[in-house]
Design a protein around this nucleic acid. Structure first.
Lengths: 266, 266
DNA sequence: CGCCAGTTTGATTTGTGTCAATAAGCGTGG
DNA sequence: CCACGCTTATTGACACAAATCAAACTGGCG
């Protein structure tokens, strides 16, 4: 088991050689901690993969899931182009997924919070279509996809859940497409804040006060805007009394007004 | 069989009542034509769903696929919010998929050509997340998803193919996200033309001469631009000798220059 | 033939990008 | 602990690509 755990890290490390970064170049060590976390006891199982499995099936799923030493901030989980082996569930922390454009720039395609699954874009080409990086110290469950495929042929509930997971990713990408295509800077920022707020609430965290794990650059990149525009959007919303912004610390003072700013009719 | 065929139409019709359109309000008639098309003889099987199935499996797949009277231009195939029952393969013609924004505008999320599959965004919520409309007379194969699910639990090849299909949709949406987020008007238009060209080539059609099935409005909507900007982009590329544009008739005169215009390095 | 939707072209406006400078946070080491 | 340097964030001035507004043109279809 420890062997396979380590393989994940090694894969991440070897692929990221050309993306210079202190934490990446540090050698990966196997660590002696035990990662005794089970889906059954995981607070997130309600919103994560295990959803809708009976305890026998859950045990089988449990057996193929690989848990490992947490990723440090800025560490790479997987790199685009690397052989696709697993999809990943975020257990704690926060991740960003991004792909590199033909001219070498980065496009952030999503932020992932605890209970959410990433890496499913790698299935079609047997290679990851996007990279994933830790925005803060993050614990990840790696789920080998070939095992998952075999299991899901035996468990109709799991198969269905997987199809739904992939389909949900499509609809979420479509929402982002619409956001980029039709909405102003302020609307985009407001929409992102509402999305984070909603996802926090789903995990029993505050919907009105939270710390953004990503930088303004990442937000701008994700929303198709520049850092300056993001900063100005925050300032405007603060001035109009919708938000209190203290660097990455956000407080939503007026949820309805924020929805209005996002152009979502009440 | 005819009953189920008709049900598809009725579903499309009833849901589209508030989107006024002549062809939609016309009553659907059952028709007497036989639609004897099999996956086995279909020219598109190489790029469509049946890919990588043996002939026994193919026969079973064949049995669940519903073929029907072609859709006329502007006819609705499915409407967002309608109960999700099938995914759809385009056999001939061309379709556009779109979703309606909260403020009632339309966002085109994709164009679909023969051999391509649409409607997979409906899986996660058991309701279609987007609508699909015929851009020209189009023949469609409807594949009931519950049957497909059951079959794919029995056929590992089919299951894998479905996962890949969904995953490919995700990567394509990510490409569109990147395009909208990072590229200029001309680059977006050039990229769309190259995409259509490539997809034509895959169907053994000309990669350099084709007729666009969609309007300038649809193109603009898809690319997050206005009609005027699309028109000007075409004019510019025509003037610079990259294209010959005659209304919807397009000829690519210089493929390399078009790739350059799309910001794709040679 | 004439109408109307779709397309093209021109003039002007505007939201966001770019460039520049300052300020604030944060880890590092003296 | 504070000082230092580096990264990240904010704010302002200006430029520019695309939107908007307006008008003419085209082509398909009844």
């Amino acid at each position: 088991m420890l062997y396979t755990l380590q393989r994940i890290y090694v894969q991440g490390e070897t692929m990221s050689g050309h993306l210079q970064n202190l934490s990446e170049t540090a050698p990966f060590r196997s660590c002696n901690h035990e990662f005794k976390v089970s889906c059954e006891t995981c607070r997130l199982s309600r919103i994560c993969l295990p959803l809708a499995l009976n305890s026998t099936d859950l045990e089988q799923l449990e057996n193929i899931i690989q848990r490992s030493k947490p990723l440090q901030k800025n560490e790479l989980l997987c790199h685009e182009g690397a052989p696709f082996q697993s999809i990943y569930a975020v257990r704690s922390g926060a991740m960003k997924a991004y792909r590199t454009t033909s001219d070498g720039r980065e496009q952030v395609t999503g932020f992932y919070f605890p209970g959410e699954i990433l890496g499913m874009d790698g299935i079609s080409e047997s290679a990851h279509a996007s990279s994933a990086r830790a925005l803060e110290t993050s614990a990840i469950c790696a789920i080998p996809f070939d095992s998952l495929e075999k299991l899901s042929a035996l468990m109709p509930g799991l198969q269905r859940h997987l199809f739904q997971l992939l389909s949900r990713e499509i609809t979420e990408d479509q929402l982002l497409i619409t956001l980029l295509s039709k909405n102003s800077a302020d609307e985009r920022v407001a929409t992102l804040l509402l999305s984070i707020s909603r996802r926090n609430a789903r995990r029993q965290l505050s919907a009105s006060q939270f710390r953004l794990p990503m930088s303004r650059v990442d937000i701008g990149n994700y929303l198709g805007l520049t850092v300056e525009t993001i900063s100005r959007a925050f300032s405007r919303m603060q001035k109009s009394g919708i938000l209190r912004v203290d660097n990455k610390e956000i407080e939503i003072l007026n949820h309805e007004a924020l929805q209005l700013a996002a152009n979502i009719p009440a």
